[in-house]
Design a protein around this nucleic acid. Structure first.
Lengths: 214, 214
DNA sequence: TAGATTGTTAATCGATTAACAATC
DNA sequence: TAGATTGTTAATCGATTAACAATC
């Protein structure tokens, strides 16, 4: 594995969860096999692109047959790191943290939410979605002690970078960032942004009179 | 305006909210002007790309000077459709709908959340984040009557397409879709997806042992 | 075997970067 | 005017699409 370093592009990586979603669907509807052609029709991609995308990681199909749905789903799950286990904490027990704590996507698979953190005394000690809410001042120690891999950041913009600075060298590997601010982190920590406001503004642009008339 | 049809690429459009965010910041820190060079440094883009991006919409700078922060922010706001007014409803008063109803990004600007909808009798009649929760069965009539422009979709995956089918010809222009499912809509309705699960899986991939060793 | 469909190379297209003349 | 920095054209790079030989 040391020898080859193809460097898979972000464009391809960002499509992987979508592949996984469609393949999970096909599997639950008990489809055994699928061709790049028909998967492309479903997903709105070309057959060619699908074959290119998959071949960035290996050869998962069979000539003259297509792809085995379960096998391919499993393989992409593996690539997505879903066969591994992750400890996760949610920082910020406001409305959004609350929503995420109850979010099904976080309940399945190997992603274990083990605690939530907030600076509001009224929330500390309570349980939200089955997860204990702890004081933000014990965050660093908790992360180090429990070997937390992923932090979900759902706090006000003002405190975001400061909190990140505190946790970034405690062994975390990734941040799922709901804060509309571009975090500064060292290379060994990955950040994935979920920017609701940006998405809303993209939508307003698309439907705006401005866009219609230009 | 009829004559030119440059067709601005999605790649550029998706960067606009980010420009808007940085320019708002610069404005609040009372920076009067900015060059493509220094804005690029801040945002992690090349000066060249910034000038190309902006010139897709017009010439907002001045040779030898740079860009006036407030003017450029205003211009991008205009392009994003933020100088217009939108009526908006939130469909789904679960945790996520709850979070969005209270989300600051939706409180500012010309985006007016005027109601929430749910099928749970226990929620109907209540107020969440100041917005009345109504029964999903009156959704279509409400949309038509109140001239709703934007629907935020935060309901279970199973009902998503069915609900969308019902509202799609009632005059709405856009859907902000939090459901991990690719909606089918006619061309005159725009969909912007906020896919939390996809983002989470992208993150797990990036931090996974799989990705580290390949 | 013949038909189907992949894996993969080559061609095309689009987006980013570089360069520089225009001009404030 | 000289210096700075844009607007814009040209060059490069990367991603998508097309084509086809390999092979199940």
């Amino acid at each position: 594995m040391e020898t080859e370093k193809k460097r898979v592009s972000m464009a391809v990586i960002k499509r992987l969860p979508k592949y996984y979603r469609y393949l999970s669907d096909l599997e639950s509807r008990e489809n055994e096999k699928i061709s790049s052609q028909s998967l492309g029709n479903m997903m709105g991609l070309t057959a060619s692109q699908i074959r290119q995308d998959l071949n960035a990681f290996g050869a998962y199909g069979q000539q003259g047959y297509g792809y085995n749905v379960s096998e391919l789903k499993e393989a992409i799950g593996e690539i997505l790191g879903l066969s591994e286990e992750y400890n996760c904490v949610i920082i910020g027990a406001g409305n959004l943290g609350h929503a995420i704590a109850n979010y099904e996507g976080f309940r399945q698979k190997g992603i274990h939410v083990i605690a939530m953190f907030d600076n509001d005394d009224k929330k500390i000690g309570r349980k939200i979605g089955g997860h204990p809410v702890m004081g933000i001042e014990v965050l660093e120690d908790f992360i180090a002690e429990k070997a937390v891999d992923i932090c979900v950041l759902a706090i006000p913009r003002e405190n975001a970078q400061e909190v990140v600075n505190r946790i970034v060298d405690k062994g975390i590997r990734g941040i799922l960032n709901f804060v509309p601010y571009d975090l500064h982190v060292p290379d060994n920590v990955k950040v994935e942004d979920v920017n609701i406001t940006d998405s809303l503004f993209t939508l307003t642009h698309l439907i705006s009179d401005y866009n219609q008339s230009h």
